[in-house]
Nucleic acid binder design. Structure first.
Lengths: 129, 129
DNA sequence: CTGTATCCGGGCTGATACTG
DNA sequence: CAGTATCAGCCCGGATACAG
């Protein structure tokens, strides 16, 4: 897993908007969930593994590393035996938490409408190929 | 392209949060960009193709169809020769636009910090494998 | 407890060509 | 103009095993 600054796919054509840059950060499957696991403060690795339901160790590490690289998450290694590692949001990460909360609130408030729209759409197009 | 309501991968373990549901809508590569192309009002297919830099016809259609199914976008077919199709946000879509704008604003305001953090991180870990 | 390494399958995505 | 169809590649992400 190179920590290179090599350009990724999303660098090619989505650099004008400024919004896409945020997506590059939070659009991964687990990123947002991991951030939310830290919204109440410091949390340890194993605790996150439990809190973020369904995530694997691999993806948790990968996600948290990326967030650390982006400066949104701080990692604090406590040299005990066995070792423990604490994660928390940086001040920068906290500023991102605000807009994300609004998005979550939108989801809670409107997702049912979305599901109804889907059902309605599928109903109307049920006979199509 | 089935319009089936078959469960997708993201249904398995990310149904508790309510936030993930929003991600299911906007986390695709192009979805957010397409929504933004409509933020100023009605826009035609070809115009979007130009406005959303780098998107292919296939992905534009696919993205816009999904949004239509989710009830966020309205499609208005004008029976001319050659035909033209207008897209616009539904009232529900407009409500989503608000939180998204805040996210975009965050990106504009903080992305430079993120880039600096990345550079710093890469610098510190340059010698690693 | 906190990771890392490897395999591998599926879906997203781009490129291209075709259609009404 | 506004799509659809098909092919192929690549990366995401899950499972599993191993390590400090």
């Amino acid at each position: 897993m190179p920590s290179s600054s090599k350009t990724r796919k999303s660098d090619i054509s989505i650099s004008n908007c400024g919004y896409s840059k945020v997506l590059d950060i939070i659009s991964n499957k687990w990123t947002a969930l991991v951030i939310y696991a830290m919204e109440d403060g410091v949390i340890r690795y194993g605790e996150m593994l439990r809190r973020v339901d369904g995530i694997s160790k691999k993806m948790l590490t990968q996600t948290v590393r990326k967030l650390e690289r982006d400066g949104l998450v701080a990692r604090n290694i406590i040299p005990t035996v066995p070792p423990s590692v604490e994660y928390s949001l940086t001040p920068l990460g906290e500023t991102l938490l605000q807009p994300m909360k609004e998005l979550r609130q939108w989801g809670r408030g409107h997702y049912q409408e979305v599901e109804e729209a889907r059902a309605s759409y599928d109903m109307a197009n049920a006979s199509d190929s």
